[in-house]
Design a protein around this nucleic acid. Structure first.
Lengths: 106, 106
DNA sequence: GTTTTATTTGAGTATTTTGAAAAATACGAG
DNA sequence: CTCGTATTTTTCAAAATACTCAAATAAAAC
């Protein structure tokens, strides 16, 4: 659980990766096409996609020699909910939220 | 803006720092009291608080020789709005939040 | 088969982050 | 002023990150 939030937030903490997610919002894309607008090498983008995939934010499916990358927006839900809890503390069950946060540490 | 999101997400990508935020949800606290429940050294916690403060998630006010740490939940707004671009979350979705808590607590 | 296209992997390097430990600073109390 | 408490800073080492380039793999195309 802690790992899930760790890897999600860490994946989002990089502008290249956020830009990739924004691109994938439009459409599924091949790795080469994802890399095209960036200055960076293809290998570097491939690694960024690996980080996003490890966090569950992107899934990759190989068809032929092309690997298609697909946004998995549901993976943002845990992190988004975690954050929104802070903005809404007066409106929710504080004890349950803190129990959750405490448990997350183990 | 990119910098702001970078530092916010990076700050959240650490379970110790998320636990600190959760503690500050209860009340403002002195650095020493923040550090108390952790195994880590006080200096390490002071640095974590520095990361959170640099990201704007916490503010620190020195009164006498004690520095009080205060949660700044509004600082999460930028990141929260960014996530909303992905459509996985309504602006306010307490039902999802509670469902998430229920699911993660068992 | 050989070549081309798509993508990953590994080696090497530079930078950043994390934490401990000890020294330094800041300030109230006696 | 001196002492003890609160907190930060510095120094140092280990681990993680983010690249590049070159080599390796995989599968289509010729």
């Amino acid at each position: 659980m802690a790992d899930q939030l760790d890897s999600t937030f860490a994946a989002l903490a990089d502008p290249t990766r956020r830009a990739i997610l924004a691109m994938l919002l439009e459409d599924d894309m091949a790795v080469t096409d994802v890399a095209e607008p960036f200055e960076m090498s293809l290998a570097a983008i491939s690694k960024h996609l690996g980080v996003l995939t490890a966090a569950g934010l992107v899934s990759q499916e190989k068809r032929g020699r092309v690997k298609w990358c697909k946004l998995e927006p549901d993976a943002l839900r845990g992190a988004s909910v975690w954050m929104q809890g802070f903005g809404q503390m007066d409106a929710i069950d504080l004890d349950a939220f803190e129990a959750f946060l405490a448990k997350e540490l183990d």
